[in-house]
Design a protein around this nucleic acid. Structure first.
Lengths: 341, 341
DNA sequence: TTGTAGGCGTTATCAG
DNA sequence: CTGATAACGCCTACAA
């Protein structure tokens, strides 16, 4: 005995009304008399009916689902896990469902494009994306008629709303804070510099500018180079750099995750923060408050970003391209144990 | 000028074939002559056609999407973030797409049921769920004809495949390890005990049994009670318990996240692990390897769980209910700094 | 306020 | 190997 399919027609028959009336009751669009409304509700309960969202989407052209594309959300100390939660909450407030797509942490343009394609294919109403690998050269391959909001450094100027992070200014503030705390030999822990403008180059700019503005006694820029932005890479890179005799009096981590890996690397060689070196990160992940020592950080306003991203996407859905396309998230410098002498 | 809709019919016209042939080329079900295959491919490229997965799902009854329901995946130190990544990877290997639904960390049965309903409504082929609040009393409200695989403690015996964690045995092993390392006053950091069988009660059982088996000198069971399973709750609970004069020589955290919060709480009052107390957790989250000190833990085999969960779900999709419904994940005790004298 | 007709884009089925 | 037909479950548009 296979369970009979229950559709709106089934419910309609049970309630003695037309399918359209069932639809109206469910969507609450048209006004339906209380009598029928009750009969339909009873019939739904009796039949165990559940809406087929797929059919609704096919017909109406709207799914009520938005996608969030974040790289490496399942990696340890990922900034994106936190952001994802806030965006989901904000989406729910507006009656939208959020689904998260998270390709691996390796930034591959094809993977990112495929994830966008998939969201489009699944008829998401739009997506909020954080491209890591997409550059201006891929701009033409982004679907033109698919609402997109870009977070973080953008792949060149597209006609797409964009929420940037305060990368340069934040890194500047972080570096300045280290200098104020007495640091005079600050190492930046980051990936190899590139020609393109990325989050790495922007933050490195802020770091260098701060050192330059402070004056000669701020010391020269110095990079502890890591192969990827994982805490693991940072751990071994910092450990080896210390073993090779490099002993800066402060570290600026390109992300909080990287900085936490660096702290672990320092512990590996018996060094202690803030006693032996100061340290500050970037991202404001919650784990930074719980670590020992807790880490100072540049914390962009994640709630602001989530709210703005969803608002921009909703604007795209309802009103077309807005006037203002460029936004930069506010930030605060959070001072914790890792920069306290 | 609005972009014209491009459907299979458009492609078919461009290629001079029927829509059915386009469908066959795309799905690879039927064999199509190389000539037509090439013409269709060219037409797809020329028109910029993308499949509408919604329509395909409606007609075929299969979406190729499976849902993963994990509570609090975006919370700091969540065990589920890690697991989600592995399940996604495993699903991809089988041509399935995984989407993650993550209600907040608060265990509310209605929220969990709603998330399952939503997955069903969106025509997911099935879901892998980790119910926190669902109990036997909700069993009847689970959709009967919707493939489900349950992870963790199950809401009573359902006719549903279930992968359990080695909760009792793992907690036993963890406690025993602390005893072997010399601990004689071990506190369990956990939520208030309940009547129902939950992850909390199972792990507490293992803890108590190990103390009993060791003998009188193992000391009495002692609970540091936390209001929820977050690291924040653990931090304040442990800190306050120390301030009230409680000074056990070891802690067993009900989860790694809880234990990391506890370490932070100990640091708040100037206590150091492993010098002043030993500590071990449960879950094997990657952050436990990176913290200072790194934490010993009971680490269930996450890859095994992910693989088995997807295999079970696929079995449900293709072959109906399997013979074996009950599985328990293997685990290893990972010894790190937090239990090294 | 309620009902009827038709189609959203795809694929199952079966005939050619 | 290819194509015509119909249907998946719902909602837009319009009529009653």
């Amino acid at each position: 005995m296979s369970a009979a399919r229950v559709t709106m027609a089934t419910v309609a028959r049970e309630a003695g009304v037309s399918p359209m009336t069932v639809s109206n009751v469910l969507s609450g669009k048209q006004s339906v008399s209380p009598d029928l409304r009750a009969r339909v509700a009873a019939a739904i309960a009796a039949t165990g009916y559940r809406m087929n969202a797929t059919a609704r989407t096919l017909r109406s052209g709207r799914s009520g689902v938005i996608g969030l594309l974040v790289p490496g959300a399942t990696e340890p100390y990922s900034y994106y896990a936190r952001l994802g939660g806030l965006v989901a909450q904000e989406a729910r407030r507006h009656g939208l469902t959020l689904v998260v797509e998270s390709p691996g942490p390796a930034p591959e343009a094809e993977t990112e494009l495929a994830a966008i394609e998939q969201g489009r294919s699944l008829q998401y109403d739009g997506m909020i994306i954080t491209p890591l690998a997409l550059g201006p050269q891929h701009a033409s391959r982004l679907p033109a008629d698919f609402p997109l909001v870009v977070l973080g450094e953008r792949p060149g100027p597209l006609g797409v709303p964009h929420i940037g992070l305060p990368n340069r200014d934040g890194a500047y503030a972080a570096t300045w804070h280290l200098l104020e705390q007495g640091a005079r030999d600050i190492a930046l822990i980051s990936g190899a510099p590139t020609d393109e403008e990325t989050v790495l180059t922007r933050r490195a700019d802020g770091y260098r500018d701060a050192l330059a503005d402070w004056g000669p006694e701020a010391g020269e820029p110095h990079l502890v180079e890591i192969s990827d932005l994982s805490p693991y890479a940072a751990r071994s890179a910092v450990r080896e750099s210390v073993r090779r005799g490099r002993r800066p009096d402060a570290y600026l981590g390109i992300t909080d995750g990287v900085l936490l890996g660096a702290l672990r690397g320092l512990a590996d060689v018996g060094l202690h923060v803030p006693r032996d070196a100061l340290a500050i990160g970037f991202d404001g992940i919650p784990e930074g408050e719980l670590s020992v020592p807790s880490i100072s950080t540049i914390s962009p306003d994640h709630a602001w970003i989530a709210q703005r991203a969803v608002a921009l996407l909703r604007g795209l859905l309802e009103a077309g391209t807005p006037d203002d396309l460029e936004f930069t998230a506010p930030y605060v410098l959070v001072e914790r144990e890792s920069t306290r002498r």
